[in-house]
Design a protein around this nucleic acid. Sequence first.
DNA 1: AAATGCATGTAACGCGTTACATGATTTT
DNA 2: AAAATCATGTAACGCGTTACATGCATTT
Lengths: 200, 200
Amino acid sequence: MPRTSSTAYALLGLLTIEPMSGYDLALVVRTSVGHIWSESYGQIYPTLRKLAVRGLVNRKTERHRSKPDRHVYSITTKGRKELTAWLAVPPQPEIPRNEMLLKLFLGAQASIDVLVANVERMVQEHGALLQKFKRIEHDEIDKNLQYPDAPFWKMTARYGQTEMEAHLKWAEETLEALRKIAKQQNSSLEARKEKNYARG
Amino acid sequence: MPRTSSTAYALLGLLTIEPMSGYDLALVVRTSVGHIWSESYGQIYPTLRKLAVRGLVNRKTERHRSKPDRHVYSITTKGRKELTAWLAVPPQPEIPRNEMLLKLFLGAQASIDVLVANVERMVQEHGALLQKFKRIEHDEIDKNLQYPDAPFWKMTARYGQTEMEAHLKWAEETLEALRKIAKQQNSSLEARKEKNYARG
DNA sequence: AAATGCATGTAACGCGTTACATGATTTT
DNA sequence: AAAATCATGTAACGCGTTACATGCATTT
């Protein structure tokens, strides 16, 4: 097994929810765990094959008259064992690559307007996400607490909320600071202009 | 220029702080912007060459008697222009790959002890980071507010703090929830045991 | 008639990491 | 004497994305 990649385990994990095809998995990744994990077709299909070869999943082919065949994968006992072992390994830390923050870090090279626009865009997006996470928690998780997965899904939904709230709080503070800087720049610009008028 | 990669711009941006060699840049990435951005030698050296070819940086070779030559790169006017243009492009959203959260999402397949350990490790790590960000803000940034970069570096330090605080808050709530689940599991285990005693 | 959706997959490419090579200097 | 630091870089590899190919069914 490769050293670093957790793609195989992620797919294995999602197959504990229910047996699925590659197409289904891509859908689940996009719509359900999309804010936690991403995975593309180019990864999913080959990885499923490899998992089948290793006996961690079973593959069943559903034939239809007209549509192309569906390959439905289900996790095996062996697969469950490997998954559980992986879950016990301390999670790999995320490699940090936050372009928004980098651009702010280099803010002295940009105009304040641009920085303000970036932060305001973030407020829009993360505000919407906050609402979405709340909705998911109340409408989809809290109403299905009988399922054994539900408490854990709730925790991840709560994580998203807490983080988005933090980002919004920070954005407010930051916008204030940016506007203060803009004012200073304007006033020193004014000062220079007056000087020039006096001179000219 | 490649479609997606922001590596070149990140290096260009760091060179606005001061002229540096590839080695220096790797150091700055690790020690200064390490929590925002990561970059490896294998990326840095070839990218610097390409930037030099495109005229966005100048390269000067410092010869030493004994040590190997140092290639010091400085950003050009053309480079500053491209950087400023890039800073105005809406930041690319991060691709989500949070292994810790994924493991929690799949928590029904793991033992509660393992999940608790993972969250507790996060409390340790993010608690330490929170302290670090505070220290950086007060000891390194607030004392150098005369530099034009300082206000922006402060914003990113504040971002780190706000996020770490949110994670710690969430972790507390989550540990409580996990312990509640553990209790429920134990009590139903007890019930089964008693049944067996009564039977045997 | 054209576009979109279902469903499979592959090929090519690029980004990024890791490991290695080199070699002198300083520290332990 | 051994290890670590300074400082350059390259080669190989693997992960992951994007774009493409296929082909029927359904919607516009």
